[in-house]
Amino acid sequence: MPSNADMPNGDRLSRRDFLSLTTRGLLSLSGLLGLGGLIRFLSYRPDPAPPAQFDLGLAANYPPGSRTELADARALLIHTPNGFVAYSTICPHLGCRVQPADDGFKCPCHGSRFDRQGAVLNGPAARPLRILRVEEQADGHLILHTD
């Protein structure tokens, strides 16, 4: 194996060139890694916010007097003689899902009870159930707004 002293000058990689090449290589590598991280960061998409409106289908599917639990929307849709009314089934105390009861609604977590109009019968909830907007569109579809 020839020593450096035996190699022609044109084939020799000087120490300076070696260090320079290595430095550039490492800088390029770290730049690529950084760029990859930046692309990943910029392309991050947070989970979409939960929908604020729900197409409930045709109003005719909800006959007068019906009480329909809408699990996805966390709401109860009631077809009253005066039209459609929807209550949020999220307890205003801490957010548990209230359940229909004989006299209205009850919270399975902490025992709050609400009457059929969502008013507080007993705490710990201090506020009534939220009434949600129900819109009947020209095509007969009901749209529930939960925002």
Partner: peptide, 9 residues
């Protein structure tokens, strides 16, 4: 506990 459901808390 029933008072601390994971879907709520």
């Amino acid at each position: 506990s029933p008072s601390h459901p994971v879907e709520t808390f």
